[in-house]
Design a protein around this nucleic acid. Structure first.
Lengths: 182, 182
DNA sequence: ACCTGAACACCGTTCAAGT
DNA sequence: ACCTGAACACCGTTCAAGT
């Protein structure tokens, strides 16, 4: 047996798991198949992740880290649009894992950056400070809902073709109301 | 062994599965535990459901059948509010199974009744016929998103306390836009 | 420190057999 | 027609052992 160059680490395991989930589906993800991909026995994984559940948590965190945060100098509408586009792109790249977002709390470290970016945009839009968190939850729930519907297959194939355009229509309706609240 | 009174049927299996998912979580649902609850061997289930995936599909259908359809004589806003309340109630009763809604197509038989009810309400609100389907998808995605966030634990415990009120706030914003489109 | 072998208590599903 | 027994190819995870 050729010895492994780098010893195993958590990041490698998460990367391998994401690749597997994207190519074969979440159902194909097992500690044993992940280990197989890494050329290691299943038990070797347990030195780096506490168990499978915690590994899936790490996967979701990783997804959120892929989201680019727009430049603060841009107009607030554009920043919100770019965040939404980024999230929908993540959903299309990682459809199975994306659905796990609903089952994980939105206040993990990786979730803080996107949320703060939305807070900033809403403040720059001029809405009252006490409305900022609920407006953020409206926007994040809306984009997550559309992205999950599309990624999970709730919308028909025909609807999915237009889902981007349709989400943007819904988004503009909400922007309209945000301007009204300002 | 005492002989089973009624022979097993699909409905019994789905009921037992839903009970199990609600009380022990979706992770505890296995063909073997379901069979155990019904006093039968796992293999007996396969005469009535084709496999586990198809059984979970049946579970989601069953959830949608729980949704009461409001009286057509009521004002359109009230009908939409009642549908939303009903769906959020289903989510709170069956949090684990509810998340599966995003992964199942929205055009199954059981999904037709609630969607038609929303179509009717939107038409009565007076919005243009070609906007009806996308407005329905906006509303259903919004309510599904809020309900799933709450049921799945995306919102913090503190947020969940207010989630009902907060969803209604978001819903009224959308109603405002629907009136504007009319 | 990092990985393995063997083992335990589970899975979904098929197939031939029983009544 | 409806259910079972035995079997197959899997799971997650623990623990003692190897290097």
């Amino acid at each position: 047996m050729t010895p492994r160059r780098r010893p195993l680490d958590r990041q490698q395991i998460i990367d391998a798991t994401l690749e597997l989930a994207d190519s074969q589906g979440l159902a194909a993800v097992s500690m044993r198949t992940i280990a197989g991909r890494l050329g290691v026995t299943p038990m070797a994984l347990y030195r780096h992740v506490t168990d499978k559940r915690e590994l899936l948590d790490g996967l979701v965190e990783r997804l959120l880290l892929e989201l680019p945060i727009p430049d603060r100098e841009l107009p607030w509408e554009q920043r919100l649009r770019e965040l939404a586009v980024g999230l929908r792109l993540i959903a299309s790249r990682h459809p199975d894992v994306f659905l796990l977002l609903f089952a994980r709390p939105a206040f993990t470290p990786a979730a803080v950056r996107p949320r703060d970016a939305v807070y900033d945009a809403l403040r720059d839009a001029g809405i009252a400070e006490e409305l900022v968190p609920r407006a953020e939850r409206l926007l994040s729930t809306l984009v997550l809902g559309y992205a999950a519907s599309e990624a999970g297959g709730r919308f028909s194939a025909d609807e999915s073709v237009r889902a981007g355009e349709e989400f943007e229509w819904a988004q503009e309706l909400v922007f309209e109301q945000i301007r009204r609240l300002s």
